[in-house]
């Protein structure tokens, strides 16, 4: 019984981590076809901004987290304009050379990997040079839940609720707002969307900013629990990529299901066999899932649905 409660908390912890790590990446990869290898560094920006706002500027934690999100979203906007779509360099080159020099990175998986890899090098080293090898850390708020000899950090369990909230919010944004409709139209068929008057450029820009903002949120939320070193992003990267791939094309549902499945496996195996096997189990599950469901979970669901419609 007690171990069941342990397992529940560990699962919620793992679920939250995977979902929050993957959220921003799923949006950017799913909608723009860009693999952002600097995703971990965006998380780092959010965590650093939050920590600096809280410790150096003295803002209360929730306000500091908001600062973290906004700073990262703003940074994402800049990156999108300069690197991903190349609008700013193109505008400049148009003026001086009379032609565009950069193609947007949308749907160019390999090229976006190289570009964002370069970006991540610049970000990590840039932060190291300007802010040093580490920052002082914010303490974890909210105490703990104690039960018959065990205890779990309340904050970490609460993150699971936050993760669900993020998913719900993303779902709302993508299905109920103007922007969401435009974004889904652009994913489905960019040319038609543009022909129908959708400003696809602005849609991409907003999408990247939202994805970056979500990464910043992850950083902000986890800032009180991890060490603030410039390379902190790399500990999120594996889970993020694995979840995005296992989840499949549907951003919200895929991330939720992937978080649930991988979180459950990781938590259960860690609980029984230790963290080493938990990690191996996570990675092996990913490989097996991709082998048997190459389109991810939601892709598989889609195929089933199509097949059933055809059969009916």
């Amino acid at each position: 019984m007690v171990n069941g409660l342990n397992l529940l908390f560990q699962f919620l912890d793992s679920f939250a981590f995977i979902v929050l790590a993957a959220a921003g990446l799923a949006i950017i990869f799913g909608i723009m076809g860009v693999i952002n290898l600097a995703h971990g560094e965006f998380i780092m920006v959010g965590a650093y901004a939050t920590t600096l706002a809280n410790i150096r500027a003295g803002l209360p934690l929730p306000a500091a987290m908001l600062v973290g999100v906004l700073v990262t979203a703003g940074f994402g906007l800049v990156v999108e304009r300069v690197v991903i779509s190349g609008t700013v360099p193109n505008a400049l080159s148009q003026r001086f050379l009379g032609r565009k020099v950069i193609e947007p990175l949308y749907d160019r998986l390999a090229d976006s990997m190289v570009a964002t890899w370069g970006l991540s090098l610049i970000m990590v080293q840039g932060v190291r040079i300007t802010l040093g090898n580490s920052l002082d850390q914010i303490g974890t708020p909210l105490g703990n839940i104690a039960y018959s000899g065990f205890s779990y950090s309340t904050y970490r369990v609460m993150l699971a609720a936050v993760a669900l909230g993020v998913l719900a919010l993303t779902y709302y944004v993508f299905t109920r707002t103007e922007y969401g409709m435009r974004a889904r139209a652009t994913i489905q068929d960019e040319d038609t969307a543009r022909a129908l008057g959708v400003d696809t450029e602005r849609t991409y820009m907003t999408t990247f900013a939202i994805g970056s903002g979500l990464a910043g949120l992850t950083g902000a939320l986890y800032a009180p629990t991890i060490t603030m070193v410039p390379g902190l992003g790399s500990s999120f990267l594996v889970e993020a990529f694995v979840a995005v791939v296992v989840g499949g094309p549907s951003v919200v549902l895929g991330t939720t299901l992937a978080g649930g499945l991988l979180g459950a496996i990781n938590a259960t195996v860690s609980n029984v066999l230790g963290t080493f096997f938990g990690r191996i189990a996570l990675l092996v599950t990913a490989i097996v899932m991709i082998r048997f469901l190459p389109d991810g979970i939601t892709g598989f669901v889609e195929t089933l649905r199509e097949r059933r419609q055809e059969g009916a």
Binding site: I102, G118, I129
Partner: peptide, 20 residues
């Protein structure tokens, strides 16, 4: 030196964007 990684990162960006 300190700027080594930064320089490499910038070069990567410039080359992959300019000469895809």
């Amino acid at each position: 030196g300190e700027l080594a990684f930064v320089i490499v990162g910038v070069l990567l960006l410039v080359f992959i964007l300019g000469l895809p």
